[in-house]
Design a protein around this nucleic acid. Structure first.
Lengths: 235, 235
DNA sequence: AAGTGGTCTAGACCACTTG
DNA sequence: AAGTGGTCTAGACCACTTG
């Protein structure tokens, strides 16, 4: 058994949503119909639906049926997720515009956050992540060249910085600061926004066992993004 | 069927962990053992285990068994802190203005988040929290009157809603959505702000073992508030 | 009355880890 | 070899919503 049947069914459903064949609020085939199509028991078809429901892609209602959910950008606070996976996980189309990939001299802020000296060389990438062709995140990232010497060689259309860094220097910790900001003219332009729109900015420092790997500013237009998470309370 | 069997099994396991009988890394009875104890099929016992595993209470490993998870709760980012403690912890002066404490009819949004019917009575409190006499958080809170019947009797100048609710109905879980917003005229006035300032709004639902206890909108002027935290990555 | 999802059974075979 | 969890089947009865 290469891929489990319920996984195949999940993939099929994700595809339908992704390529637009099944839009928001579309009514899916019933459990019985799916089990016939995929030649499996109802329990197996059911499992695929249940898991996609937990994932938030579908909504189910007893007696009524199963429907494609109304999809909102939302990401879990407690996990460092890869943005492309997150967007594709919602069944949406992901793509990225690479704005800039260069060396830079560390400014004071960057030097402090990366534990380097002012003026030292750092790697910098500026990417715009799009969900269904709408910009949802502007990622400005500064990378410690000593820890990730080949950062600039990455093809960012194939691997997000997060993916690349995860391979190069596995993260052990992260630090976040979250703010509401008004973007300036320049950033607004890059995000294709009116400059008077509030944005949610996440400043993230990531650490590997060898030190501070990178510092990222993740800027999200509030009209297109919310941050969400659920967790248990330690009593 | 009042309560489903798999729910009963879940509750039993939760109890064992809660009262300390089953500690971290404790090895649970196998699916087969549980299905015999509870006189049910293996699939039903399995469902209980699977769901608690997704919830993070248990960890499963093929061939090895099922174990109580290490409960480190990576919650440092959005730990539920008491705002008065937080402010005093910074060595600052805390005080609060009680703006409104009333019954209300649940609007649609409130009804949905609290799992009530539209128009049912809910308790509502509106408080302004000040740090060194500067407003840092406007707290609009809706409380389920069935779970906390004496909410309106609290003296909010002595106990914050969080403190009072913690005593009345211990939290087990919380859910957050974080957004950047522009406040409207009315809220801006309450926060003593220009209305064109961006704010960080945290929408928080808190749960006890009996259900959704409350829904809070916590609105922070971005000029006076940032949200920060550091946490480890689960590899 | 027919269709939907929700719960449950009593089996089966498999992959993996342990003694 | 025995025990564990992972996948799957072919049924069953139920509660709920719809025509």
């Amino acid at each position: 058994m290469a891929i489990a049947k319920f996984e195949q069914i999940k993939q099929y459903i994700c595809q339908q949503v992704e390529n637009g064949a099944w839009r928001e609020n579309f009514k899916l085939p019933s459990e019985n119909a799916l089990s016939q199509e995929f030649v499996c028991s109802r329990m197996t078809a059911r499992r695929a639906l249940t898991e996609l429901c937990e994932q938030g892609l579908l909504v189910r209602s007893q007696g009524k049926g199963t429907f494609v959910a109304t999809l909102k950008s939302q990401s879990s606070l407690l996990e460092i997720k890869n943005i492309s996976d997150e967007i594709r996980g919602r069944g949406h189309h992901y793509n990225v515009e690479v704005l800039q990939v260069t060396e830079q001299q560390a400014s004071e802020e960057v030097a402090i956050t990366l534990s380097l000296e002012v003026g030292q060389t750092v790697y910098f990438s500026s990417l715009l992540h799009l969900e269904n062709n709408v910009p949802v995140q502007l990622e400005l990232r500064y990378v410690n060249p000593q820890l990730v010497p080949n950062y600039l060689d990455n093809d960012f259309t194939l691997h997000t910085p997060h993916e690349f860094l995860s391979m190069a220097a596995p993260l052990t910790e992260a630090e976040h600061i979250i703010e509401a900001t008004m973007v300036d003219e320049h950033l607004a332009q890059q995000l294709k926004l009116q400059s008077n729109e509030p944005c949610l900015e996440i400043k993230r420092r990531t650490f590997s066992s060898k030190g501070v790997v990178s510092f990222a500013r993740l800027i999200h237009p509030s009209s297109r993004f919310r941050l969400g998470g659920r967790f248990s309370v330690s009593t």
